[in-house]
């Protein structure tokens, strides 16, 4: 089960509202490489994992991603708090505002709503772990691109923290893949799917 802790994983303290930044950062909540997809992916995939250490890493990274979803939401909340109608119009935030006001809604920067396709849970141990390695790189590159677009240090600081975490998660998933392969036939890792086939 899960319980909530009343703290953010890393401080988010933004002084200046900017609907323009909210418009692009929302992609890390509900976009193709966003935190909502990541959390749901790992917390779903763990049921197909036959090895305890791999179940543990998926559980704990998935849980951390829930905290990242909260951090991105806090960034969006602070960027859109006290924004003026003039700012909303000038920054092109009107297309979001008309449906969601300043509420938190998971969508990509392009406006495409969150898609369950990003969860990618296949029930195949090797396919899932390779998906996770790629997903961490894709989240990392999205944060790199956001950092290319953002000047405000109050916003850059938590984004840099989130980018670092993608790199650590990539390392841990690499170890999980190695541990999994050690338990399989080294001549043919794909001889059977330990999550489904009897042997």
């Amino acid at each position: 089960m899960f319980s909530y802790q009343k703290q953010l994983q890393y401080p988010v303290k933004i002084k200046n509202p900017s609907p323009a930044l909210a418009k692009i950062i929302v992609t890390q909540l509900g976009g193709p490489h966003g935190e909502k997809g990541a959390a749901s992916r790992y917390l779903s995939q763990r049921f197909a994992m036959p090895y305890n250490e791999v179940k543990a890493i998926l559980t704990d990274i998935g849980t951390e991603e829930l905290g990242h979803e909260e951090m991105i939401s806090a960034i969006l909340y602070q960027l859109t708090k006290n924004m003026s109608i003039e700012q909303i119009k000038a920054d092109g935030f009107d297309t979001y505002f008309v449906d969601h006001t300043a509420g938190i809604y998971p969508q990509a920067a392009s406006g495409t709503p969150f898609s369950a396709d990003t969860i990618a849970s296949t029930g195949d141990v090797l396919a899932d772990l390779h998906e996770d390695l790629a997903a961490e790189q894709k989240a990392r590159l999205s944060y790199d691109n956001l950092l290319r677009l953002i000047d405000d240090n109050d916003v850059r600081d938590p984004i840099k923290f989130l980018r670092e975490r993608e790199i650590v998660h990539y390392q841990r998933f690499g170890e999980a893949l190695r541990k999994t392969q050690e338990k399989l036939d080294s001549k043919n890792f794909y001889a059977f799917n330990p999550a489904f086939d009897k042997k």
Binding site: E53, E64, E175, A176
Partner: peptide, 23 residues
């Protein structure tokens, strides 16, 4: 004080991920 909580809690989270693959 909240920063202190976050710092030590983060150290725990990061160490626990490492321990998952190096128990």
């Amino acid at each position: 004080l909240m920063n202190k909580v976050q710092m030590y809690h983060f150290a725990m989270v990061d160490a626990s991920l490492f321990l998952d693959t190096h128990p």
